[in-house]
Design a protein around this nucleic acid. Structure first.
Lengths: 204, 204
DNA sequence: GTCTATAACCTGATAGAC
DNA sequence: GTCTATCAGGTTATAGAC
């Protein structure tokens, strides 16, 4: 209550640096981001970055783990819910992802591209194989379609949900859509995608 | 016939540099690639890179335009063919993309991520809006579904085709699939995807 | 905790010999 | 055309004053 006068700017120094790092790393990637940019963006001194985080790489690892959790975390609470149907899970995943990515359009390219360049280091703590393989989600899918790998199904789902955001710079940069139309389309897809996928599952 | 003794290594110096640049740029991106790495990879001297291409950026622009054409070029010959049905176009696009990306798995993330970081500079010569909007492909789609934007259709198609390659480092890095299984899946998708999409188009 | 100044290193690019 | 040597500038990280 004493020093807290500013409305939104009043974060701890450590948090201000992290906030700037989040923005710049996700926007430009690890290699293209300079520690000077982060310092400037956060309004603090360059030396403080090393004081709090020891090195650019350590700060990056922190942000990266956070962003991976953000991207993959959408799935975790949903796929093992015993009390929802496959269709309900589908709808929830689609809505949650579209909301998340509308607010963080850079997230997918950033995470996927940095993972690719990091020789698997970041994936060591991501037990995706077990998490998916033993999930209620997969079990429910196999009850409907035991003739096709659930992986195809998951890839298709994430493909139609995430890919538009990955392609968005191309779509917007070539004038195929503008920001407003793109957002409207993503809004529409919240209803369209579950309907398409449902069709895909139920088709013989 | 005189000096040409080596089997495959005998490219012009200029082409050796471009070949190394192709590999490293697509693998690590512009910012993370050092001109020294390119020189070493091509077995030539650092100074020759500047002798032939003036600067890192000019060399990059060359490779980038080449790679964009490679990625988007799959569509051009197909979408305006008057003598093929929508379904045939679909099948051709799917097969061509899966073959291209199986041979160049880094291509999509590289192109999409560099486009995002370049403030639209590379997109100036890509008249995607007209190319798609006036295409036979879109016309044929609208004959079947005038109630839904063809853009949804195209995004879905490219999503299910391209996204698996974008996600492949995650899938392989977490042990969800290995290289062999992944390739088998992509092979299967050549038949699966057209069937899914067909279903999507014909569903009321 | 925060800053200025600077060390130590790296990177793109060029000069100049062959 | 190709190489070695080197410059000029930028980048991460730290020392040391406050």
């Amino acid at each position: 209550m004493s020093k807290q006068k500013k409305i939104e700017v009043d974060l701890s120094t450590e948090e201000k640096i992290k906030e700037a790092a989040r923005k710049l790393f996700t926007q430009k990637g690890y290699a293209a981001t300079r520690t000077r940019d982060i310092a400037e963006e956060s309004g603090i001194n360059l030396a403080l970055l090393n004081y709090y985080f020891r090195s650019k790489e350590k700060l990056f690892n922190l942000i990266m783990e956070e962003k991976m959790l953000q991207l993959f975390g959408v799935l975790f609470p949903v796929i093992n819910d015993e009390n929802s149907t496959l269709q309900q899970k589908l709808e929830l995943i689609v809505v949650n992802y579209i909301d998340l990515l509308s607010a963080n359009p850079d997230l997918p390219i950033f995470v996927l591209s940095e993972i690719k360049n990091s020789e698997g280091g970041f994936l060591k703590q991501l037990p995706l194989r077990k998490m998916l393989g033993e999930s209620v989600f997969v079990k429910q899918f196999l009850e409907k379609r035991s003739d096709i790998s659930p992986l195809h199904f998951i890839i298709n789902l994430l493909g139609v949900v995430i890919f538009p955001f990955v392609a968005s710079p191309v779509l917007q940069g070539t004038g195929v859509v503008n920001d407003q139309i793109f957002n409207k389309m993503m809004e529409d897809r919240k209803k369209l995608i579950p309907a398409w996928i449902k069709q895909m599952v139920e088709t013989v």
